[in-house]
Amino acid sequence: MCKNLILPFILIAFCKFTVYCQPTSGWQEEVNIYKQIYNAPITLINGEQTSIDKLAEKKPVIIALVYTRCTGICSPLLLQLKESLQLNKNNNNYTVLVVSFDSRDLIPDMRQMAHLFNLNNNSHWNFAITDSINRLISSIGFKPVWNNTIKQFDHDALLVGVNSQGYISKKLVGLRNEKELELMIGSINNVYTPTYRLPGQNTLFSCFNYNPITGKNKPGMGLLLIALPAILSILLLVVINKFVHRKEEV
């Protein structure tokens, strides 16, 4: 009976395997790690004047860099961030700061954006503008480029984790799953994980996926392959036993 379960499992594993993920340039996430973020003065959509450090002192911050006129990655980034954070029930010690890197954006633009995502009354979320955009993004290592033909910025989807001391402890480039977001929340709360995986590698057959919130490793498909020899040899033993004794009966 066990054999009936295991064989399809292996088959599925091997079929999935052929899907090969293209590596992305995940090294950019390593840029400026443990550097102090520029303490930019910011204006929140409720009119409050504050700064990144002051915000971070209260709770560690996840910064999302967007602009309201973006027709590309900005909306999906915020939408996915919202969805992922809603799934995360374990650790609420963070705030999200959505800050515009487009100098054309004013408070009403950001207020409308917050309204659009239905986040204007969410205590975890802050929308803001700053008048020191260039110093902020250069301290992060974020480089948007203005594209005159499409009247849009070419830029990455970027999330920056800042801990209470105002240091960048982790960055995520691109749209990422909630597990990696949890890793970021752990990291800004100074939870040490001895390792990170480089993004973009084939993760299908990895042995473990670390969950920083529970502090546990969830077994991956690879772990099955490590356990497989033991399972197979037990099966083999049973089969031999049956085979040997059947012969006797005949």
């Binding site: 395997f17 052929t18 090969y20 590698q201 084939n202 993760t203 057959f205 990895s206 042995c207 690879g222 392959l225 490590i226 497989l228 020899p229 197979l232 040899s233 083999l236």
Partner: peptide, 27 residues
């Protein structure tokens, strides 16, 4: 020895797929 069989299957898969299939170094 069964672990070796799985190991060899994975290595041969990478070898004969000429790099289309990449293994996980930790596994």
């Amino acid at each position: 020895l069964l672990a070796a069989v799985i190991l060899l299957v994975l290595l041969f898969a990478e070898y004969f797929s000429k790099g289309a299939f990449v293994n996980d170094a930790l596994l």
